[in-house]
Design a protein around this nucleic acid. Sequence first.
DNA 1: TGTTGACATTCAAACGTTTGAATAGTAGAA
DNA 2: TTCTACTATTCAAACGTTTGAATGTCAACA
Lengths: 369, 369
Amino acid sequence: MPQRRSGHVTLLDVARACGCSVSTVSIVLSEAPLSQNVAEKTRRQIRAMAQQLGYHPDAFARSLRRRRSQTIGVLAYDLSDPYCIPIVRGIQVGLQPGSYLPLLMDAQTQRGLFDNYLQMILERRAEGVIVIASWVFDETNLLSDVQKNNVPIVIVSRDLTERGVSSILVDNETGGALAMRHLQELGHRKIAVIRGPEEMFDSEPRWVGVQSAAAAAGIQFDPRLVFQLDNLVDPTSGFRGGLECASRMLASGRPFTAVLAFDDLTALGVIRGLLGAGLRVPEDCSVLGFDDVLPAEVATPGITTVRQPLREMGLLASEWVVDAIEARELKKEQKPRLHRASPELVVRMSSTAPAGKKKRREREHAEVT
Amino acid sequence: MPQRRSGHVTLLDVARACGCSVSTVSIVLSEAPLSQNVAEKTRRQIRAMAQQLGYHPDAFARSLRRRRSQTIGVLAYDLSDPYCIPIVRGIQVGLQPGSYLPLLMDAQTQRGLFDNYLQMILERRAEGVIVIASWVFDETNLLSDVQKNNVPIVIVSRDLTERGVSSILVDNETGGALAMRHLQELGHRKIAVIRGPEEMFDSEPRWVGVQSAAAAAGIQFDPRLVFQLDNLVDPTSGFRGGLECASRMLASGRPFTAVLAFDDLTALGVIRGLLGAGLRVPEDCSVLGFDDVLPAEVATPGITTVRQPLREMGLLASEWVVDAIEARELKKEQKPRLHRASPELVVRMSSTAPAGKKKRREREHAEVT
DNA sequence: TGTTGACATTCAAACGTTTGAATAGTAGAA
DNA sequence: TTCTACTATTCAAACGTTTGAATGTCAACA
């Protein structure tokens, strides 16, 4: 039994047990080029002994010496938002072959945590950083600290190219237009809209897309049927916001046959609100979401939504960040890249053609009940 | 501008810029006890210079020297399962004050990945490990490698105390009984059941609880209305399984007024199936879930479910693992602990009293339509 | 016998930090 | 003066690896 100073088995332990030097053991176990010179017998012995003792190389010592951490920091604004999960999954899948380890951190929608974790990512010498952004994330901090340390960044869900950061996000404008056009093609003309919170970067372009598609179809929005969500504090606040907007819509007394919600959780809230008032979805009112997250898929009716290719976006982010690391190694200057992922309309059960005036009267009746 | 060998600013850089030794800088910046002896002026100068140069201590060097990684490995079987998220959140919250960093890994329901990540956790010298278990996780490997290295483990969602591992899980038997009793109190007597997959550890005790509560109420299950899910490959397979079971239920032609599903995703699948056949939930058929995950909360009707206090379980796991680390430090022997968390019935909208025979005829009519 | 080369192994320095021990410098007390 | 005590700072070793250079061994060739 080797004498262990720390709790872990080290190269020295293995070396002593084999009667050879630390160097030899290191060379064999890390399969360095020199290991071809080591006698087959020795190699086998060393490997067997390492296995037997339960040796695991110390990543700290190794990284310190090699000056490579083999780590990519992944900083998500809130892991409890189902939106983040497919992105994270894509990143993991993309990082696997390159043998980079994702260092996954969850800022829990708290700006303070976000900054702390960013520090930690730097301290752990991540070779690159991927940020899944939302309003929580403060660009000034990011730029000053991470870029000062010459660590490549890719940001997902926000365009920060003008600040020199490679960015991947869905084409919100096209997405908004896609949703609007779907409703228009179904024959809806009286449409309520729930815009995203002011501080979310997606809100504005999505609204622009909706408006331009509406204009192209000659549809005008009733300003009393255009709502805006409050700032989000957690993933369920979108749901609560949608629920509240639904009741305000109904209370307004204005006619509408469809609701264009900011995202899927909002749409689910709207549906709860409408159903609670006795309306049927989609027969009395169509409801559209955005993103295509898990709850939208498994709810019934399934939410018709504009899908973001989240997994693919994460995959791309991981590829970009690895590229950037390699480029830095070769001292190549790289300029920030931008990818606008194409959204895709996913038609499920929450949208259908409007029922016409006859139905609307029924709805007004139901409201009273 | 200091000469940097690696891309990062080191203590040496700061020391040179301040005209003092590396030791002094280290002492000041890490706020070691000795720093009280350092002149206020020097301290200020060093701190300012560190800030200006963007110095971040190298976690590798520090951990190597201090022989503490300040890291807890957290290995989740699948982060895309909404079940994992609150647990992870609880762990994070619990770890924060102790300044441990969770090293979060996602096994993506792949046993190979699970083992790889476990190796990595050991290589990164995590001081403790929390495993969020499912069938993916293979105990033999876990025990041999992690325990050999004397790293404390806590496992969530499975009882492994008899193997010497502290375990935290919900009291499945009570939970199952809770669900059953709720249906019984509502007046249901013809109940379909969907049991969990064979390889899931929760399935059996949950079923035992259901059966004993049913027996106590004098309710017998129609064997043709007892189903079993196939093995899960991803979080949506529960949904698909529920959907399929629903159609088999209806096809069986046997009467039932309620469905006891294995978990929430299964329940959502059942609802989709029933609604698709023209039944109404809960008017024609009540549906119960288990776990209380996000999609169950935001779907309409909201799923009546047996809530697992996931966040609290994660919190407790983090406390236990930190305890165990401290105990190990003091050479105190610790025996494995067990906590059975109390489940809680959450009544939402998917359950109500059965409609009686009149309604059942309607249902049979709807089936034909 | 000496030189060459291939093979098998080891030396020793380095990565960036921490920290017990050592070194100066200063001031008050004996 | 000398001793003690304190303040302010530095030395140097260590953490566990990796790796370029060095060492030693052996056989074969000139």
